[in-house]
Simulated scan of single mutants.
Amino acid sequence: MSETLKKLSDEGVAIWLDDISRERLRTGNLEHLIRDRQVVGVTSNPTIFAKALGKGTAYDDQLRDLAVRGVDIEEAARAITTYDIRWACDVLHPVYERSDHLDGRVSIEVDPRLARDAEKTVAEARALWWMVDRPNLFIKIPATEEGLPAITRAIGEGISVNVTLIFSLERYGQVIDAYFAGLEQAREAGRDLSQIASVASFFVSRVDTEIDKRLDKLGSPEAEALKGKAGVANARLAYALYEEKFASDRWRALKDAGARPQRPLWASTGVKDPSLPDTLYVDELVAPGTVNTMPEATLEAAADHSEIRGDTVHGTYDEARALMDRLKETGVDYDDVVRVLEEEGVEKFEASWQELLSTIEGQLADKGGAQ
């Protein structure tokens, strides 16, 4: 067992793995990570599934059966991805029970091509909730403007949601409000609020990537001094907003009715800039009641040499605000940055979904059953 990761967990950070594959499930690797790496949850996205389908033979038997049945490409994609998610939910079910249903969660994303259509997003969320049929499931819904009412409706219907692709503080506040509204709808419908859960996936490294690119173009010493700092500052201010929102009278009324808080989840925690410490977004975002979902490389780096210094978020808010002010003064347009990141995030997931469909189409054709 990694003592470093145990220390991180003891600080109140839930460690989730940002990856899934049939091979990982089949070999027992996920059980190993639960046992030896403090992993208590799993997230997935279209990019992860496209990568998993593109290598190895773990999916061959199911693909062969789907080909024989003449299943169309999109149905095959749902059958394959929900199979893995259901299996992971079962592996993590003991964690789910042991943590009083807090952790042991597994996330699957709605078709990202629906990110700008609330009605279709809700319909897809219902379908995935029904297909996986596990209480420790999260349905991932992108935090686009159109996604906000879909989040409220899904929560109101008792579907637990992982809200993804959050980059801006303004949008994060809207996401929390959408969660509150969904819980209020669920309460009015007589649902047990204690059975509804949510996390809000606030992206970190992509913020640094986009802002640092703009700082490089500015080329000044002031701009250079700000590189590699915005992602952590932005996330810390998100945690401050979380504390503010969940201290409100509106939340207290929901809590009294049995509701659980929507935990902040640090996503995109793999460091993209090799000049930065590879555990930066682990070490600098330690706060109680959070989730950090890590690619395996980041997880192993954290296990090996993360420096867990206790809570690294509280007491930093003024410094974080000052840094964001300096970025603005230097010429970085925060609103434009987060707009670009949201649009690119949706586009990247759409491209990965298309890659996944193309991979499945080719493999079904190889087995004689393409439609």
Rank of each mutant, 00 (worst) to 15 (best):
E347A: 15
R171L: 06
V40D: 03
I141K: 04
F202K: 02
L193Y: 12
I48G: 02
F180Y: 12
G219W: 07
V291A: 02
A14V: 10
K348W: 01
Q38Y: 04
V42Q: 04
Q363Y: 03
R260Q: 14
R24S: 10
K120M: 11
G331P: 06
W129H: 15
R35V: 01
L128K: 07
L357C: 09
L276V: 01
A240S: 13
P46C: 05
V110Y: 02
V39I: 13
T269G: 05
R339F: 07
V207P: 02
D65V: 09
L33Q: 09
T359Y: 02
A154P: 03
Q371H: 12
E188A: 15
V313D: 00
A365S: 14
G147I: 03
E109K: 06
G41N: 05
R191S: 09
K120Q: 15
V338R: 00
T144V: 07
V286F: 00
L299A: 07
V42M: 04
T293Q: 05
D72K: 09
P221Y: 12
D325Y: 02
A230R: 10
T312A: 03
A230I: 03
R64K: 15
G156W: 10
E350M: 07
V204L: 08
E170Q: 13
R78C: 00
A351S: 13
L276D: 04
T269K: 06
T57S: 13
A235G: 06
V207M: 04
S306K: 06
K272I: 10
G345I: 07
D278I: 07
L102T: 13
P94H: 08
N234I: 01
D111V: 09
H314N: 12
R260E: 06
A115F: 05
F49I: 07
L241M: 13
Y59V: 07
Y242E: 03
E244F: 03
T82W: 01
V282I: 14
P149H: 12
T209P: 00
L237R: 12
E307G: 01
R116F: 13
R236I: 00
E3D: 14
L8Y: 08
V95Y: 10
D103Y: 07
E97P: 00
E347T: 12
S306G: 15
A320M: 09
V313Q: 00
I151K: 07
F349V: 06
F202L: 10
K6V: 03
L299D: 04
F180C: 02
E244D: 14
I34Q: 05
R22K: 15
R187A: 13
A197W: 06
R37D: 02
G289N: 10
G315P: 08
E342L: 15
N234G: 08
K217S: 12
A225S: 15
N162Q: 10
V338S: 08
S2T: 14
H305V: 05
A365F: 09
I176A: 10
E145F: 10
A125C: 11
V122Q: 01
